[in-house]
Amino acid sequence: MKLGRIWNTLANPKRIPRFYSVIVGLVLIAGFIVPMAYDNHQLYPRPTPQLQIDEQDPFAPYDRGGAPLTEPGIVKSQYPQFAAKQGYVTGYLSPISILVSNTTLYFGTSIYSSPGGLIDEILYYSRGFDTVLESSILMMAFVVASWVALNFTMKRKED
């Protein structure tokens, strides 16, 4: 029975990734045909690329307004009702950041990512749970890798 033989070939673990990648590839080819309509009403939209840096904003490209510790920045999140201190993380500037932003125009990324800033607002506050998972994924990968390394790759003599 030919079908049975195909089934048996598939049962080899080495072939499954290859088989799977063929299937994913076929579906991806369909992506060239499918009409793709981008909805431009997105969450957390950002200004046109390079707009802020061309306007010589020292906080480019992550300037979302707000004053440190007093006034929240503008954040278009999904559920503003569930985030009591929304926008504060975006608006927060550490003293060093204020210093740097007064000196130069080209260090915006650094300023806005030394605790505070837009990405921190998303990563730690509005989508903080994602980051919990993300760092757990990293941790688990390290647990697995280090266990395998410690027990199989290195301590083989004790077997």
Partner: peptide, 10 residues
Amino acid sequence: LTYNSTIALL
């Protein structure tokens, strides 16, 4: 870089 995702880039 085009998308101005500088932190992701870093």
